[in-house]
Simulated scan of single mutants.
Amino acid sequence: MNNEQEAAMRECAAGSLTGTLTFPEIIGRLASQGVERYHADYSRQETTYYLANGESLVVPVPHPDHETAVPFSTAEVEAAVRQSQRNEHSYLDFVRKTMAAGCVGYFVQITGRQVQYFGRNGEVHVERFPS
């Protein structure tokens, strides 16, 4: 991993928290640096970025204090995703809402063009990237 790749990953993590980067912008930047996927872990408050060559970088991402709900609600996760797509809330609001919906984190599969949201009991909801 080179310095430019690491800087891009850190900038994307910070940009999501501050709202200065949109999801499509983040995906574009990461893809241009060879990142094929990343994992946002709400419990550990960190995001792990994975390069195609197997290297990875863990970046601390302080999430809002909010207890994760036990029941997983696909409908509530979908609603939070749609609000994000319409730029109706911040990333931190998105995190709060998905945690309230029982989500403990998600994997963004850049090369696979999808996001997998998962709950405490193994529930999974998949969102495909819009075309």
Rank of each mutant, 00 (worst) to 15 (best):
Y91Q: 06
M99L: 12
E6G: 01
A14S: 14
A80N: 05
L51G: 10
Q116G: 09
R82L: 13
T111K: 14
T47Q: 13
E11M: 06
I26F: 09
N2I: 11
A101V: 04
N87C: 11
E123D: 08
N2V: 07
V70D: 00
V115W: 02
E46H: 12
A80G: 08
Q109I: 00
G15C: 09
R96Y: 00
S131P: 15
V126R: 11
D41C: 06
E76M: 10
F94K: 01
V108W: 02
V126N: 09
S131E: 15
A7M: 05
A31H: 15
A79E: 07
R82S: 14
V35M: 08
S32C: 04
E123W: 02
V81P: 11
G54E: 10
A8E: 06
V126C: 05
T47H: 09
V126G: 03
E6F: 07
V81C: 12
D93T: 03
Q109S: 13
V124W: 09
E78V: 11
F107V: 10
I26D: 07
Q116I: 15
N3Y: 13
H63V: 03
E4R: 14
E4N: 14
T48H: 15
V124Y: 10
F23H: 12
N2R: 08
A7Q: 13
R82N: 14
G102Q: 05
R29N: 11
Y49N: 03
G34K: 04
A69Y: 01
Q33A: 11
Q33P: 05
Q116F: 10
L30I: 09
E78C: 08
N3D: 13
G122T: 03
Y50R: 09
S16C: 13
V61I: 07
T18G: 14
S84K: 14
S131C: 11
Y91D: 08
D41L: 02
D65H: 07
Q45C: 10
A75Y: 02
L30R: 03
E76G: 02
D41K: 03
C12N: 11
N87E: 14
V124Q: 12
C12G: 04
E25W: 12
L92P: 04
H125L: 13
T22D: 06
I110Y: 11
V59N: 00
T68Q: 00
V108S: 09
Q114T: 11
T47F: 10
T47W: 12
E127N: 09
F72A: 00
A31K: 15
M99I: 04
R120Y: 00
Q109C: 08
S90M: 07
R128C: 04
P64W: 02
V126S: 06
D93A: 04
Y106N: 11
T111Y: 14
V58A: 07
A40C: 14
V58C: 04
E4K: 14
R10A: 02
R120N: 02
Q45K: 12
I27F: 10
P130A: 00
F72T: 01
Y91V: 05
D93W: 01
G15R: 08
F129R: 10
V35G: 03
P62K: 03
Q45L: 06
N121V: 00
A13G: 05
Q83V: 00
T74P: 02
D93M: 01
